[in-house]
Amino acid sequence: MDDSVAYLILAAVVFSIGAVGLMVRRNPLVMFMCVELMLNAVNLTFVSFGDDLGDLGGQLSVFFVLVVAAAEVVVGLAIIVAIMRRRPRATADDLSALRG
């Protein structure tokens, strides 16, 4: 139980770093990496709870999260590449043609 609490705290810290990073960083690629941090914190939580409960469901969930995250990466990088091709070194603040 003590081990898993340590892992859960670690996961919560990683999740918070990702969430804060997404809000304060302006580079789309870095924002995107922060989301990956959050997803991996979720995976760590699932695994440690699964181990704690003696239930395979937690480990199983991680596979789904990993596969879906990989699909998200493909789409996200495609959109980011489309932006960077047109405007190298774009930050999230430059993307402000739409506002109102």
């Binding site: 999740f15 990702g18 969430a19 997404l22 789309p28 924002m31 995107f32 989301v35 959050m38 997803l39 914190a41 979720v42 939580t45 699932f46 709870f49 937690g58 969930s61 999260v65 998200e72 789409v75 996200g76 959109i79 980011i80 489309a82 932006i83 999230a92 993307l95 402000s96 043609a97 739409l98």
Partner: peptide
């Protein structure tokens, strides 16, 4: 811009939701 805003917001929301699910 439409795509990247929707995308970043969407994946952020999924991550928050997943943490709740875990």
């Amino acid at each position: 811009e439409a795509g990247i805003k929707y995308y970043l917001m969407g994946v952020f929301a999924s991550a928050v939701m997943l943490y709740g699910m875990s």
